[in-house]
Amino acid sequence: MMIVFLFHGVGGEHSLNVSLDAHRKLLRFLKDDEDKIWNPNFIEAARYIKATQTAN
């Protein structure tokens, strides 16, 4: 399973805003559980998918 988080407004001034506190909690959760949750950048994830996908 892959989940992508995309934020357009952290801390205010946007209709899809997420509070700075909530954003920090998410980042802390990811950091605290990095031994269980792989948190690559987009390029690393794309390379992994390409390397592991099977041909149909």
Rank of each mutant, 00 (worst) to 15 (best):
E34C: 11
E34V: 14
A46L: 09
T54C: 10
A51L: 04
I49V: 11
A45K: 03
K36F: 07
W38F: 05
F29E: 09
P40H: 00
R24L: 14
K31T: 14
F29T: 06
R28A: 11
P40C: 07
P40Y: 00
A45Y: 04
D33S: 06
E34H: 14
E34L: 02
A51V: 01
A51C: 01
N39T: 06
K25C: 01
T52K: 04
D33G: 05
A46R: 03
K25P: 00
A46C: 11
K50H: 15
D35N: 10
T52E: 15
P40A: 02
L26Y: 01
E34S: 14
K36P: 04
I37F: 01
A55P: 15
N39W: 03
R28S: 12
L27N: 08
N41H: 03
E34F: 07
L26S: 06
A45E: 04
F29Y: 05
F42H: 04
R28I: 09
T52L: 05
Q53D: 10
I49A: 12
N56S: 14
K36H: 07
N41F: 07
K31G: 09
K25G: 02
Q53V: 00
W38R: 04
F29K: 01
R28T: 10
W38Q: 03
H23T: 08
L30I: 12
L27A: 09
T54K: 11
W38H: 05
F42I: 09
L26E: 04
H23N: 07
W38A: 05
I43M: 07
Q53H: 10
A55L: 08
A55H: 13
I49D: 12
L30N: 01
A46F: 02
R47W: 10
T52P: 13
I37C: 02
Q53G: 11
D32A: 11
A51T: 00
E44P: 14
Y48F: 09
I49H: 06
E44Q: 11
K31A: 12
L27S: 06
L26M: 10
H23I: 08
R28W: 05
R24E: 08
F42Q: 06
W38C: 03
P40V: 02
R28G: 08
R47E: 13
A51N: 06
D33L: 06
Y48E: 05
L30K: 01
